[in-house]
Nucleic acid binder design. Structure first.
Lengths: 242, 242
DNA sequence: GGGCCGCTGTAATCCAGCGCACAGCTCTCG
DNA sequence: CGAGAGCTGTGCGCTGGATTACAGCGGCCC
């Protein structure tokens, strides 16, 4: 069981457990390429393994690569001028980051840090643009991904101001369980801490702990160490909209 | 002087004060079209006037048009399930909205409401896609606009959790003055109220009033009714990052 | 001109969540 | 196997902002 302490880098040898193109074909964005396009992409891109705690891209740095998560878990982190940390999202297999670098080639708007040992695939901006030129379906899919990104950010901006801590936490739990959970999105058992949760919902770590305790007391969730089981999804939904 | 009460619709006759193509050429997105492309766009699109309080697009509705503000002022508003209102942005001449409808054709993620009598230009998704096909520069520019949108939303999400009311207000004032202000971005005198400001920074209206009073007492801004003069821009910047 | 409506300005009360501090637990590594 | 590090769980005082209420004021409309 992968239970590595956060913040401690880990040496991970390269070497895929399964072929790259097989994993890549499961990612919506690249699936649009078709068989031959996938081969071209694999040849053009880079696949690497990263250990927990490693920083993939650093906020503010230049960068022109688009990344896709093949395996593992990474977090998108924004550090404010005062050093406060905001976790924008957790990304698992099939998800991508670095879209902005492709759009305008500007500096990274956030950092991306490995939470669970991750296997990432990346292509450079020129390579991606060339792929898009040859495969218009990839361009369409890319726009779709962008749309989802904008919608999520919009919703999040509103949530941050209109929901109280309990609501934001409920929403975060549902979001995490749906994306990274087991048993049909009911169990969260991944390597992120309450501090990560706190940074996701914009609250202090103790406050999150309390809010979790409240949910557990109402039998809406159950907590066992770092494992959270969602027992009453409907109630969580209700709390995430009021 | 335009000093219409918010929320009260107003009948505004059609009829541009200046030619459409002239205004459109001043908008970065459409400027990429060149002379002949502009004419095509004008022929394909619609130009209309809307009175204060009118709702241009309604959150949740389907919609496939991209809008550009030629004149006036509109606000992008998100209403939560409980009825709380969040103002995402104020858009003036040269700015666009409805990009999402072009990306994925999904429902409107927010409503757009006229604040000051506005003259808007709009094109449908198919028309815009056709224009992009014939004028690749338009597609490039559209991606640039999207990049800016994503960056702004990302920054906003972080601001909402890391800045206190004073900081968020300072940031909002700088943002508004830069976009819609006079005298080199120092004076804000538009038709939006303290309630609008409150919905922008995610606070109650009295709280905003107090925060403004504090800034005025420190001689950082001066307030005269609905007119706000930024007297110490450097100090506002300082407050918007700590 | 008079009444009405909406916006600004301000005061009083209340409470959620923060900051801080500390205890207990578990996993890791020497 | 012992030490240490990092995470979870919890108590306490404090403050910022929400809530509510109300007075003053200026346009707007009849």
């Amino acid at each position: 069981m992968e239970r590595r302490v956060n913040g401690v880098p880990e040496i991970v040898p390269p070497g895929p457990a399964r072929p790259i193109d097989e994993k890549l074909a499961e990612i919506p964005l690249f699936a649009a390429l078709g068989r031959d396009g996938l081969e071209t992409a694999v040849a053009a891109g880079l696949a690497r393994r990263y250990g927990a705690g490693q920083i993939i891209v650093h906020q503010g740095d230049p960068g022109d690569r688009l990344f896709a998560v093949l395996e593992g878990l990474v977090k998108v982190v924004l550090t404010t001028a005062q050093g406060d940390v905001v976790v924008l999202d957790m990304l698992g297999p099939g998800e991508t980051f670095g879209e902005l670098s492709v759009l305008d080639g500007g500096p990274r708007s956030a950092s991306v840090i490995v939470v669970e040992t991750a296997w990432l695939f990346s292509v450079s901006r020129p390579q991606l643009l060339a792929l898009m030129r040859d495969h218009p379906a990839l361009a369409d899919e890319f726009l779709r991904v962008l749309g989802a990104l904008v919608r999520r950010l919009t919703e999040r901006a509103a949530d941050m101001v209109s929901l109280d801590l309990g609501g934001r936490l409920a929403k975060a739990l549902l979001h995490l369980a749906a994306k990274h959970g087991e048993s049909g999105g009911k169990v969260i058992d991944r390597a992120f801490t309450q501090s990560d949760l706190a940074a996701m919902v914009g609250a202090s770590r103790p406050a999150v702990n309390r809010a979790l305790a409240v949910l557990a007391a109402r039998n809406i969730i159950s907590i066992n160490g770092r494992t959270i089981v969602l027992k009453n999804i409907a109630e969580l939904h209700r709390r995430s909209v009021r």
